[in-house]
Design a protein around this nucleic acid. Structure first.
Length: 272
DNA sequence: CTGAGCACCTGAGGGC
DNA sequence: TGCCCTCAGGTGCTCA
């Protein structure tokens, strides 16, 4: 489900619910694990902590409290919603209850998500964050950084963009979309991408991620923000999930193939 | 170090 | 209607 724009929108919608400033009360764990076991003492430690902010690092949500960060990764199918008056559903695995009575439910059918609690000082050394690369929407990322980072890389440029150790937040949708916009074939060896193309790729990744954030993210099947709203950026896809449909620019049929382990879409005419 | 393949899990959709 | 197969927005691990 979620790449950077979707996680960013979950962050924004959770904040809009008025969660920040509220004090945690009970935390209900309705099973013992997701991809990994819930940390020991999660419920006990979080109780009484005040939620100071909700941040995003890569595709992780960071719930900041006085002593801890609660890390949440949505995996492929995770979502947060207020319980309000709605009934519990299957795959509702965690309920964060606040003193005010507000309750946030984490639902994740495939259970590829992660929930972890780390001490504030150890946040960036945590097993989940320590290997992460640069944030794409900051000045720390540039054509020069991409160019230098790819010079010895034999693998496809698409795989490099999706590798969270290199640059974070770009997943299968936005990698295909950005490479189309930049005119670079996704299967091209990263080290053969020119300096000028690196500039183009960075600017298009940044433009597309920003536009997708503005559009509320992309909903292919089931993505919803925490207000239950779908994204709208899927209406602007140029290549993703458009195999055998005409390119909006040249009319050639969009091709699809597994590259870097994931189904990948490109225009054989517009991308070289 | 790199890159490929596999594993983790459920549900939707297509073909028969 | 039901069964079987494939595929899905992610990422950590193992192995060569």
């Amino acid at each position: 489900m979620p790449e950077l724009p979707e996680v960013e929108n979950v962050k924004l919608s959770l904040t809009q619910l008025g969660t920040v400033g509220q004090r945690f009360d009970q935390v209900e764990l309705r099973r013992k694990d997701l991809r990994v076991p819930f940390p020991k003492g999660l419920a006990r430690d979080l109780k009484g902590q005040t939620l100071l902010s909700i941040q995003r690092r890569a595709k992780y949500l960071l719930f900041e409290t006085e002593k801890y960060y609660l890390l949440s990764h949505l995996g492929m199918s995770g979502s947060w919603r207020p319980l309000a008056s709605s009934a519990l559903k299957t795959h509702d695995h965690v309920i964060l209850k606040f003193v005010s009575g507000l309750e946030l439910v984490f639902n994740d059918p495939r259970r590829f998500g992660i929930l972890d609690l780390v001490m504030r000082a150890k946040l960036h050394d945590s097993r989940w964050l320590q290997h992460l690369g640069v944030e794409p929407l900051t000045k720390d990322w540039s054509g020069e950084v991409l160019f230098k980072g790819t010079r010895k890389m034999k693998g496809p440029i698409k795989g490099f963009l999706m590798d969270q150790k290199r640059v974070v937040g770009v997943g299968n949708i936005y990698a295909s979309e950005a490479l189309y916009a930049a005119g670079v074939k996704p299967q091209r060896a990263a080290r053969l991408v020119t300096r000028a193309e690196c500039e183009l790729i960075v600017s298009h990744v940044q433009r597309i991620l920003s536009a997708a954030i503005q559009a509320g993210g992309s909903t292919i099947r089931d993505y919803r923000n925490s207000n239950g709203e779908s994204g709208r950026f899927q209406n602007q896809f140029q290549v993703y999930d458009r195999a055998n449909q005409p390119c909006h620019h040249c009319g050639r049929l969009i091709r699809a193939k597994v590259i870097a382990g994931r189904n990948t879409f490109w225009c054989p005419q517009c991308q070289r």
